[in-house]
Each structure stands twice: as C-alpha cells, then as structure tokens.
Computed example of a mutant assay.
Amino acid sequence: MKWLIIFAALAPLSSMANMLNNTNDPNQPGYNPSTQRVQSEMQTQQAQQQLKLQADQQRQSQDLQRKVQEQRNSASQRILKSQPGSNTQPPVQQNSN
C-alpha cells in the first residue's frame, strides 16, 4: 500500500521528465509521436505491474508467515495436550450457598 502512494506521488514527475526529454523534440530525426506515446504508456504500465507484483509478494509473504505461526501454535497445543496429566479437567468450583 505504501508503494502505491509513493508511485502515485511520483507518476506526475515522470511525465514531466518525459516532456524534457530531447527525444520528444519534433525537430530531431526519428521523432515519431505515436512511438513516444506507446513508449510512455508501456513504461507506465510496467511501473504499475511492478507495484502490483510487489503488493502480491508482500501479501503472499504475510500469508505464509500467518500459516507458519498457526502451525507453530497448533504444534505447541499438541505438545501440551500430550503431556501427562493434561487430560484431567480442572476442578470445578461449587457455590456453597
């Protein structure tokens, strides 16, 4: 989520930098506005895909950590239950009214 905010803040700067790029000069040989537009769109799409990939990787990492913790907790519970005397119920307190 943090990366998405950073990307959103930097996206306008990248388009401004693209305007300053000399390859956008129509007087330069090889200038093709549609090529520049496609290139810019591809760069934007690549940045968005990288952010999505990072978010997916972070989510997968968190899911994996959660599953490992659940397995540890489950193993701990099994060990505690297998200890001698763990099958007995705690004494029930009765009201003496």
Rank of each mutant, 00 (worst) to 15 (best):
M1H: 15
K2Y: 07
W3Q: 01
A8N: 03
A9L: 14
A9I: 12
S14H: 02
S15K: 02
S15I: 08
M16C: 02
L20Y: 01
T23M: 12
T23N: 08
N24D: 02
D25I: 04
D25T: 04
P26N: 00
P26A: 05
Q28C: 06
Q28H: 09
P29R: 06
P29G: 07
P29H: 01
G30C: 13
G30R: 07
Y31T: 04
Y31H: 15
Y31R: 00
Y31C: 06
N32Y: 02
S34C: 04
T35L: 13
V38P: 02
V38G: 01
V38S: 03
V38E: 02
Q43M: 13
Q45Y: 11
Q46S: 03
A47L: 11
Q49K: 11
Q50S: 10
L51F: 07
Q54D: 01
Q54M: 13
Q57R: 10
R59I: 12
S61A: 15
Q62E: 08
D63W: 01
D63C: 02
L64Y: 09
Q65P: 00
K67D: 14
V68P: 02
E70F: 03
Q71F: 05
R72N: 10
N73V: 02
N73I: 03
N73A: 12
S74N: 11
A75M: 09
S76Y: 04
Q77Y: 04
R78C: 01
I79L: 15
K81L: 15
S82E: 06
Q83H: 12
P84L: 08
G85A: 03
N87W: 09
V92I: 15
Q94H: 14
N95V: 14
N95P: 05
N95D: 05
S96N: 13
